[in-house]
Simulated assay, not measured.
Amino acid sequence: MHLAYPAVLSVLLFCTGLYGVLARRNAILVLMSVELMLNAVNLNLVAFDVWLSEAARDTLHSGQALTLFTIAIAAAEIGIGLAIVLAVYRARGTSAVDGLRDTAETGPGPLDGPDGSGTPAPTPKAAA
Protein backbone atom coordinates (compact mmCIF):
# COMPACT_ATOMS: atom_id res chain seq x y z
CA MET A 1 0.00 0.00 0.00
CA HIS A 2 1.27 3.43 -0.87
CA LEU A 3 1.54 5.69 2.15
CA ALA A 4 1.05 8.86 0.10
CA TYR A 5 -2.70 8.44 -0.51
CA PRO A 6 -3.88 8.29 3.11
CA ALA A 7 -1.27 10.89 4.11
CA VAL A 8 -2.55 13.39 1.53
CA LEU A 9 -6.15 12.71 2.55
CA SER A 10 -5.17 13.17 6.19
CA VAL A 11 -3.49 16.49 5.44
CA LEU A 12 -6.58 17.68 3.56
CA LEU A 13 -8.86 16.66 6.44
CA PHE A 14 -6.60 18.31 9.01
CA CYS A 15 -6.37 21.55 7.02
CA THR A 16 -10.15 21.61 6.59
CA GLY A 17 -10.58 21.16 10.34
CA LEU A 18 -7.99 23.83 11.07
CA TYR A 19 -9.78 26.26 8.78
CA GLY A 20 -13.04 25.45 10.56
CA VAL A 21 -11.52 26.14 13.97
CA LEU A 22 -9.99 29.45 12.89
CA ALA A 23 -12.85 30.79 10.74
CA ARG A 24 -16.07 29.65 12.42
CA ARG A 25 -17.89 31.64 15.07
CA ASN A 26 -20.37 29.00 16.22
CA ALA A 27 -19.04 26.85 19.06
CA ILE A 28 -20.69 23.67 17.79
CA LEU A 29 -19.04 24.06 14.38
CA VAL A 30 -15.69 24.59 16.13
CA LEU A 31 -16.20 21.32 18.01
CA MET A 32 -17.04 19.56 14.75
CA SER A 33 -13.84 20.94 13.20
CA VAL A 34 -11.80 19.64 16.14
CA GLU A 35 -13.36 16.22 15.58
CA LEU A 36 -12.37 16.42 11.92
CA MET A 37 -8.78 17.13 12.95
CA LEU A 38 -8.80 14.16 15.34
CA ASN A 39 -10.11 11.92 12.56
CA ALA A 40 -7.21 13.05 10.37
CA VAL A 41 -4.83 12.00 13.13
CA ASN A 42 -6.60 8.64 13.42
CA LEU A 43 -6.25 8.09 9.67
CA ASN A 44 -2.53 8.80 9.91
CA LEU A 45 -2.10 6.43 12.85
CA VAL A 46 -3.83 3.56 11.07
CA ALA A 47 -2.03 4.19 7.76
CA PHE A 48 1.39 4.23 9.39
CA ASP A 49 0.49 1.15 11.41
CA VAL A 50 -0.39 -0.75 8.22
CA TRP A 51 2.74 0.52 6.50
CA LEU A 52 4.99 -0.48 9.42
CA SER A 53 3.37 -3.88 9.77
CA GLU A 54 4.05 -4.60 6.07
CA ALA A 55 7.64 -3.37 6.24
CA ALA A 56 8.82 -4.74 9.59
CA ARG A 57 6.27 -7.49 10.24
CA ASP A 58 5.09 -5.67 13.36
CA THR A 59 2.34 -7.65 15.09
CA LEU A 60 1.61 -5.27 17.97
CA HIS A 61 -0.52 -2.86 15.90
CA SER A 62 0.26 0.03 18.21
CA GLY A 63 -1.17 2.56 15.74
CA GLN A 64 -4.57 0.93 15.93
CA ALA A 65 -4.39 0.84 19.73
CA LEU A 66 -3.55 4.55 19.82
CA THR A 67 -6.47 5.18 17.47
CA LEU A 68 -8.84 3.51 19.94
CA PHE A 69 -7.51 5.75 22.72
CA THR A 70 -7.93 8.80 20.49
CA ILE A 71 -11.53 7.83 19.74
CA ALA A 72 -12.26 7.46 23.46
CA ILE A 73 -10.69 10.84 24.23
CA ALA A 74 -12.63 12.45 21.36
CA ALA A 75 -15.89 11.04 22.71
CA ALA A 76 -15.19 12.46 26.16
CA GLU A 77 -14.14 15.79 24.64
CA ILE A 78 -17.31 16.13 22.61
CA GLY A 79 -19.47 15.24 25.62
CA ILE A 80 -17.83 17.83 27.85
CA GLY A 81 -17.67 20.37 25.04
CA LEU A 82 -21.38 20.08 24.26
CA ALA A 83 -22.23 20.39 27.95
CA ILE A 84 -20.21 23.61 28.14
CA VAL A 85 -21.81 24.96 24.96
CA LEU A 86 -25.30 24.22 26.32
CA ALA A 87 -24.50 25.91 29.63
CA VAL A 88 -23.15 28.98 27.83
CA TYR A 89 -26.17 29.08 25.52
CA ARG A 90 -28.56 28.94 28.46
CA ALA A 91 -26.70 31.69 30.30
CA ARG A 92 -26.08 34.07 27.39
CA GLY A 93 -28.58 33.10 24.70
CA THR A 94 -25.94 32.60 22.01
CA SER A 95 -23.24 30.09 21.15
CA ALA A 96 -21.01 32.53 19.28
CA VAL A 97 -17.37 32.15 20.20
CA ASP A 98 -16.66 35.88 19.87
CA GLY A 99 -19.09 36.67 22.68
CA LEU A 100 -17.25 34.42 25.12
CA ARG A 101 -14.23 36.68 25.45
CA ASP A 102 -15.80 38.75 28.20
CA THR A 103 -16.73 35.90 30.54
CA ALA A 104 -15.11 37.50 33.58
CA GLU A 105 -17.45 39.26 35.94
CA THR A 106 -16.99 42.97 36.22
CA GLY A 107 -17.25 45.14 39.31
CA PRO A 108 -20.42 46.03 41.17
CA GLY A 109 -23.47 47.03 39.18
CA PRO A 110 -25.21 50.41 39.29
CA LEU A 111 -27.59 49.36 42.07
CA ASP A 112 -25.01 47.58 44.21
CA GLY A 113 -23.65 49.12 47.36
CA PRO A 114 -20.04 50.13 47.91
CA ASP A 115 -19.22 46.74 49.39
CA GLY A 116 -20.45 44.87 46.29
CA SER A 117 -23.50 43.39 47.99
CA GLY A 118 -26.92 43.42 46.40
CA THR A 119 -28.23 46.19 48.65
CA PRO A 120 -28.11 49.76 47.32
CA ALA A 121 -26.01 52.37 49.06
CA PRO A 122 -27.87 54.52 51.60
CA THR A 123 -28.91 57.92 50.33
CA PRO A 124 -27.71 60.90 52.35
CA LYS A 125 -30.37 62.85 54.23
CA ALA A 126 -31.10 66.32 53.04
CA ALA A 127 -30.23 69.15 55.41
CA ALA A 128 -33.21 71.07 56.65
Rank of each mutant, 00 (worst) to 15 (best):
T67Y: 07
H61A: 04
A74M: 06
Y5V: 10
R90S: 13
A4K: 02
I73Q: 13
A91F: 06
V97P: 00
A4H: 01
P110E: 13
P6T: 02
D49S: 15
A76N: 07
M1H: 07
T16Q: 03
G17W: 00
A96V: 02
A4C: 03
L68F: 14
A47E: 01
M1D: 02
I84D: 01
A75C: 00
E54M: 15
G116I: 05
A47Y: 00
T70L: 15
A56D: 09
R24M: 05
L36C: 15
I80H: 05
F69P: 01
A128L: 12
A127P: 03
L18R: 11
R24L: 08
L3N: 08
L100M: 13
A96C: 10
T123P: 04
R101A: 08
R90Q: 06
P114D: 03
N42R: 05
L52M: 05
T103S: 13
L38S: 12
P110K: 03
G113S: 14
H61I: 11
L29S: 05
A55E: 14
G63P: 07
A72M: 04
V46K: 02
G113N: 13
A127V: 04
V85T: 07
G118N: 12
F14V: 04
P122L: 10
V46Y: 07
S53Y: 08
A96H: 01
R24T: 07
T106P: 05
S62P: 09
L111R: 14
G109K: 10
L9H: 07
A75T: 13
A127Y: 00
I78P: 00
T119W: 14
G93C: 00
S95C: 11
G99E: 14
A128W: 07
V50L: 12
V8T: 09
E77K: 08
I84C: 15
L86V: 13
V88A: 13
A96Q: 12
A74C: 06
H2E: 00
L86Q: 05
A74T: 06
S62A: 14
V41A: 02
S117M: 03
L86W: 04
A47D: 04
R90D: 13
A128Q: 07
D98W: 06
L100T: 15
D102E: 13
V85E: 05
L111I: 11
D115E: 15
A121E: 09
L52P: 10
L68K: 03
M32G: 03
S62F: 12
L22K: 00
L36P: 09
L52K: 06
A27H: 00
A87G: 03
A104H: 10
G79C: 12
R90N: 06
P108G: 05
P108T: 11
L82M: 08
T67N: 03
